[in-house]
Amino acid sequence: MMASDLKLNRRQELFCQAFAAGGNAAAAARKAGYSVKAADRIGERLLRNAEVSARVRALSEEADAKLIATSRERQQMWTSIMRDTRIEPKDRLKASELLGKAQGDFLERVALSGQNGAPLGPPPNLIINFVPAKDGKPVIEAES
């Protein structure tokens, strides 16, 4: 969400930027130019404002997007390490392994079946009883 999409005044925008950077409403209010004496109350009030909180959320999401590597970025990094002949072979092999795992190259598919290839099902003669407990939550008892 762009700042122009919201109807924030200059001090509200400064508050949003300071709060998103530091997470302290009173300090953000002071940095935005609000009264030092009333900064606690003003900061709290601003955070209850829907447009201000939406702007803070948008700024926080932008910051997170810059800090957290995407799947593609990790794959690019592992690929560059894997292909760099100056890096130790064990580290190149580890990068190759991580890249393969991320791309699903090493999935092992196992088919489970019962006796003589029959489909799996519940064990024969299994009885499940739902018994109310003293605290009102059901307790499961199984007998075989």
Rank of each mutant, 00 (worst) to 15 (best):
S80G: 10
P124K: 14
A118C: 14
K134L: 11
E141H: 08
G33D: 12
R83I: 00
M77K: 04
L98T: 05
K90E: 15
K134P: 01
W78R: 12
V52S: 03
L93C: 02
R74H: 04
A54K: 09
L99P: 03
F130C: 04
D105F: 14
K66R: 10
E108N: 01
E51Y: 06
I42Q: 09
L99K: 10
I140S: 01
I68N: 01
Q76A: 12
F130H: 05
S80Q: 15
G117L: 14
F106Q: 05
E143M: 02
A32Q: 05
R30G: 09
K101H: 07
L107C: 01
P124N: 12
L99M: 07
S71G: 05
K101M: 07
R92K: 09
R10F: 12
R11W: 06
L67P: 00
A25R: 05
G23M: 00
M2D: 08
Q12R: 08
R55K: 05
R109A: 09
A27K: 06
P132A: 03
A102S: 12
D5M: 07
N49H: 02
A32W: 04
E62M: 13
P132V: 03
A18D: 05
A63E: 08
D5E: 06
I81D: 02
D105L: 15
N49M: 01
S144Y: 10
V110C: 09
E141T: 09
G114H: 08
R45V: 06
S96F: 12
E13D: 13
D91I: 11
E13Y: 10
K137C: 10
A133L: 10
L120N: 13
